[in-house]
Nucleic acid binder design. Sequence first.
DNA 1: AAGGTTCTTGACGCACTCTTGACGCGGACC
DNA 2: GGTCCGCGTCAAGAGTGCGTCAAGAACCTT
Lengths: 226, 226
Amino acid sequence: MTRVLVVDDEPQILRALGINLRARGYDVDLAPDGEHALTLAAGHHPDVVVLDLGLPGIDGVEVIRGLRGWSTVPIVVLSVRDGERDKVLALDAGADDYVTKPFGMDELLARLRAALRRATPAEEEPVVETADFTIDLGAKRVHRGGTEVRLTPTEWHLVEVLVRHQGKLVSQRQLLQEVWGPEYHDETAYLRVHMANVRRKLEPEPSRPRYFFTEPGMGYRFETSS
Amino acid sequence: MTRVLVVDDEPQILRALGINLRARGYDVDLAPDGEHALTLAAGHHPDVVVLDLGLPGIDGVEVIRGLRGWSTVPIVVLSVRDGERDKVLALDAGADDYVTKPFGMDELLARLRAALRRATPAEEEPVVETADFTIDLGAKRVHRGGTEVRLTPTEWHLVEVLVRHQGKLVSQRQLLQEVWGPEYHDETAYLRVHMANVRRKLEPEPSRPRYFFTEPGMGYRFETSS
DNA sequence: AAGGTTCTTGACGCACTCTTGACGCGGACC
DNA sequence: GGTCCGCGTCAAGAGTGCGTCAAGAACCTT
């Protein structure tokens, strides 16, 4: 299901958007200000963000910057301000689209679809096969020796990031930011524990990895011998 | 250079956009209607398309469909129509953004930048090859004679800085600051030891370097003979 | 409210990397 | 021709990072 994060300080707009989007089958998170927005984004990894510019506390443009620091999620900005300067600032900060209030729900939905379409460029999700297991990125499943292996959400996320960068070294910092969020960039202990769990579930000899390699001091790398 | 295709049936707008975009360093194609637009797009493969909806002949939405049949180039729609239905139709046909006339040039430019930024995701890191080894900056790995060479974090960092400044002299001070941090600017002993290790791992004759040269009193230089 | 997962956190041992000092060599300068 | 400085080499000790295990906390489901 597609996850949308909606950020707006006006409760009635927040509610209206929540109802409308859920009616269309989206999975919706609601945030009344920038702080909540960044926290929710880090935890739930939305597929698209709808962001009001006029927020109490952190400014909307700051929220864009905060998100762009570690994520490429599409951001659709809502604003009562029709000023050209605001639009330019928001777009150059990394927003993907700018809609002026008042707006029609149909237009907003169309813009969301456009943003989502761009972000998911019709790529079919690859299936990665190794001699010991099969990873289906689209179905989010892993098979090993005929049966399915259950990965916890964290483990899956870790595997997903590494497999998508197949062959490349992924730095500890990048892994932590993608899986746990930007404020966890130095919790390397998490990585060690969860990588150990992943290896125990997937590697034939967990203490002698054939697929999930450690590059000491730098990060991890997924590689198939083929 | 970035190529922009502008499609509009009003000559003065076409001219104005052409002048403005060229002044910003874009390479601009101009088309007064849908037929010319599709022909130019097929021939010149623009990086982004600015498209007016109200065209004589083929309708703007048809132009979008025509382009989307074979291209994923970002399309920014211009229109005097502010109707919600038009926006929804255009966006769902495959447009990336919708700007209502009259618009400010700064806003349009910001939207173009946003569209281009999305379309150009990860530029890839170069791979540097020499007769004796291969350095993949993106994957952070080094191959030599078929097998992989393991570099420690410090060694890799050193190699990376030198290789990214390929052919140029990198001062000891700069190397120390980039690898160890600003307060280590005079620990030249570190450089000597680690450069020796790098050479032992990569140079065919470590004591007679062919790639990692010392410039006495100044710094180091990476150079491939090719 | 209870049970089961999953995540977090701390402790420990091992391996490896970095740092540091000693030494030799060669060129520059006096 | 002698001295000095910068560089390369080597080796040893200190420090760090990693894997592993286990226990408690937090979370979700029923």
